[in-house]
Design a protein around this nucleic acid. Structure first.
Lengths: 153, 153
DNA sequence: AACTGGTGTAACCAAGTTTGTTACAGTCAA
DNA sequence: TTGACTGTAACAAACTTGGTTACACCAGTT
């Protein structure tokens, strides 16, 4: 499958924005802070933020005290939105040289497989559509609380 | 997602074996013929056949008049079997540097995402499990018949 | 016994992808 | 004007993928 971690990193970043928002601690987060959380370079974060921005999921503010925020409330952004923004193309790839059309398999197999792939894509989409950024941010907050409680015992 | 076409090529190859089997025209197919249908190099086909063989889906015969056959009847091989054989690892990858654990997001996000990815994996698996090689080979045969009829009109 | 047409597998290359990095121009608030 | 940001280009290193050549081995056929 996808050897890219972009989706995971994008979810991480977006969860960070959502968490800052629902806790009211930070509405506008810099790429540096996000990069520190993800453990990568700020440019990598900005690259992904750019994709989110193009998809209308994120708004960025330039200049000092700049940073990024979610364009919509976190309950209105699903993992499917992020997935669609970050992953182009379908789940499986057919990009090898076109099969031999003069052959009972080559002539039709791609068409048949396309139906299967479409169904698989749909299945993944409906799973991802079930999770909103609010769900994830709430869970992160809850876990944070428990962690904090544990440290104070 | 996966930028590899291995799954599609593997399904193509296995469908070829299945079609030869249900039509009774060829029980044992050479990598050359398969490569001609896929439109690639025989070594590429043999590479994938090797994976299928390791998964117990295919039996190969060496020497002149050699080739490969399905190890089980085509109705007992699903696209999920092929997928599992050919694709290692899960649907989405987390392989970037481990997130910052001293952070309310970094500490927990991977665990949360893992649950999502598992569900997505399951969803894809149940779609793929619905298709057997017999289904596909029958459809190829049917299409072949129609094609033939059209040409003879 | 030699030939022929297959398999299995290693080695290599070119192309593409992905991530990290540096560099730099632009923007905005203090 | 300075400082802290963003956006983006350019580049490199690592890895993956697919195609190719090469070659040892194997089993019928002659």
């Amino acid at each position: 499958m996808n050897k890219s971690s972009r989706f995971a990193v994008a979810v991480h970043i977006m969860s960070g924005l959502a968490l800052g928002q629902i806790t009211g601690t930070e509405e506008c987060v810099t790429s540096s802070k996000l990069a520190n959380s993800v453990n990568t370079n700020p440019v990598v974060v900005r690259r992904i933020l750019g994709v989110m921005r193009n998809a209308g999921l994120v708004t960025s503010i330039k200049g000092a005290d700049g940073g990024s925020t979610l364009s919509r409330p976190p309950e209105q952004i699903t993992l499917l939105d992020i997935y669609r923004a970050v992953e182009t193309g379908q789940l499986f790839h057919f990009h090898y040289a076109k099969p031999n059309a003069d052959c009972p398999i080559g002539c039709c197999i791609l068409e048949i497989m396309q139906r299967v792939v479409d169904k698989a894509d749909d299945a993944v989409s409906s799973v991802l559509a079930n999770y909103t950024l609010r769900d994830i941010a709430e869970e992160l907050r809850e876990r944070g609380r428990r962690r904090w409680a544990f440290l104070n015992n």
